[in-house]
Write a protein that binds this DNA or RNA. Structure first.
Lengths: 203, 203
DNA sequence: AACGATAGAGAACATTTGGAGAACGTGCAA
DNA sequence: TTGCACGTTCTCCAAATGTTCTCTATCGTT
């Protein structure tokens, strides 16, 4: 899939992801052009269109900043592991007959998702440790209690639990008793995405 | 097959594969020439054509970077998600340029592995919560400090951190201050596997 | 010495790829 | 609401690239 892209199209794809990593939002065409050294928005648009055709990116037509990362659609059946059962403290393994395998593809993959490596202990009581990966789905609004990636003042990105207060302010609450919740006016907080999954590898 | 090639053709074939391994894409003729010490694109093209006749390589005519390795099915990252960066509390997102995607396959898949759904809070301080999945690799012996699935008296299966004591006994230590460690003679404890990964789905 | 096989340089050409910029309509913020 | 910014489409152009040629050189064999 990546192999049928031209050099410039591949660079465009990388630049979109890099911009998303740095600024928290996908770039506009002029910004993409600046990153790539291209003056013409038309040229950038042609490259983005090629990425859409390749299925790597989605675009909301006409919208400003309308580029979205597309998830690679997994082939069903390829990423399955046997699901043996439920382990209970003090109980033998319990077989689960109806749910014989778990499809990791359905577990994690989807459009507009990306992975972040977590650094720090601010969510440790929610079971998200230093070094864990979180799968984030790009959304602009999240519900109370969801764990979100939030951009504060367009600069600082944090991973916190979200609470929308009645007075219009927003509380970003760490899952760590040593850290205090942060309260901001809604205008200063921009939701970048919600955590849909978490994964950890033991070496 | 390879025996019918001349020295230079064999070197060309190796250079193509090396470029693919190193850069992720097949080389253009000029790049191939540089790797081989050849000035003329025409000469490189002749060598590539010989590889096509030998069935080792395929070419999309006219396309830039049109060389494809024959027999290599381009199944690029069926299970890959973009790995955007590292998120730090209070810091902007930090890009990870060299590690652009995470392959969930390599993360989880492997021989002798299966998945268990965890019930209970006995490992909560190790970031393994009630309802999480753990990927377990079947082994019979584990090292100190590893999280293992252990069978006690052939009946009760538990998920605990392992410690082999000097007197031959085995300590199964929960990651939960409310629960006490359990000490058994080694004869009563059978290791079924070690936890190699953990994953959790929100919603 | 003659010959064929292998290999390289470079010219010439067609096509692909990439870019600039104008023009237009619309989303979006002041 | 209005003005601007932005996405979109278009034409024209230049450079890069693949492709095909011819000419030359080296080496081993007959």
């Amino acid at each position: 899939m990546l192999t049928e892209l031209t050099d410039r199209q591949r660079q465009t794809y990388d630049a979109i992801r890099e911009h998303l990593a740095h600024h928290g939002v996908t770039p506009k065409l002029a910004e993409l052009g600046q990153a790539l050294g291209i003056q013409s928005r038309g040229v950038v648009h042609r490259h983005v269109r090629a990425l859409v055709d390749a299925g790597l990116v989605e675009v909301e037509p006409g919208r400003h900043r309308g580029i979205r990362l597309a998830g690679v659609v997994p082939m069903p059946g390829v990423m399955e592991l046997p699901l043996l059962g439920r382990i209970v403290a003090g109980q033998p393994l319990e077989a689960i007959p109806d749910e014989a395998t778990i499809d990791l593809g359905q577990f994690f993959m989807g459009p507009g998702r990306f992975v972040l490596r977590v650094q720090g202990d601010s969510m440790i009581e929610a079971g998200i440790l230093d070094g864990d990966m979180v799968v984030v789905k790009q959304v602009e609004h999240a519900a109370n209690g969801e764990i979100v990636v939030a951009l504060i003042d367009g600069e600082e990105a944090t991973l916190k639990r979200l609470r929308n207060n009645r007075d219009g302010s927003v509380t970003l609450q760490p899952a760590n008793r040593a850290l205090a919740p942060m309260i901001y006016p809604a205008s200063r907080v921009q939701i970048q995405g919600v955590v849909v999954a978490q994964l950890r590898s033991y070496r």
